[in-house]
Design a protein around this nucleic acid. Sequence first.
DNA 1: AGCGGGATTAGC
DNA 2: CTAATCCCGCTT
Length: 216
Amino acid sequence: MAPDAGDRGLGERPAGRVLGPEFFVRDTLEVARELCGKLLVREQDGQVRYGRLVELEAYLGPDDLAAHSSRGRTPRTSVMFGPPGHAYVYLIYGQYHCLNFVTRPEGQPQAILVRALEPGPGVGRCGGPGLLTRALDIDRRLNGIPLAPPPLYVVDDGFRPERVVQTPRVGVEYSGVPWAEEPWRFCVPGLFLSRRLPASEEVRAHRVQQRARGPR
DNA sequence: AGCGGGATTAGC
DNA sequence: CTAATCCCGCTT
């Protein structure tokens, strides 16, 4: 008899390597860049949904004044000060949740914000940090959990993006120079980004796509 | 106890 | 450009 796994539209775990603490403990900018193109997987009630990470921002606290951890350890930000490879989830503007991956060893409060996801199986529209968490039903219940299956984890399925573009981070103007200008937003050019890239990069991305499509 | 603001989004 | 919406962190 066929086992009932994979039936009823539950979906299956994507093939690949699950990224653990040894991946996230490294230099935050390096981790952010390498996360581009990896799969974010959400498991809930036996259901598996996932999408590909296409936009991430590094927050290098405590020195980085745009990072929550720059104001010291508080109940809200305590997870950022903890061990790597954990989810830091917080509520923003009273209505949206933002998902971060904690990086660096315990005591170094750095993290990577997930800003956009190219939707995969079971994932609807999700163009922005507050919308992708809604699409994957991620909220503060998941704050502080280790990134491991289940219920939330990252998979390297072997895909390597052709290009990764860096720009300044979004919505941190208040932190002032140089923090507001550091190019710590990492994007895989294409649709699904939370915001458009600088015009020069859009043109480049368009050319790359045309070349990939081929002439005619 | 009160107050101001925010790593966002949708709508005018 | 602005309202929505509420938790958090700091001041009183």
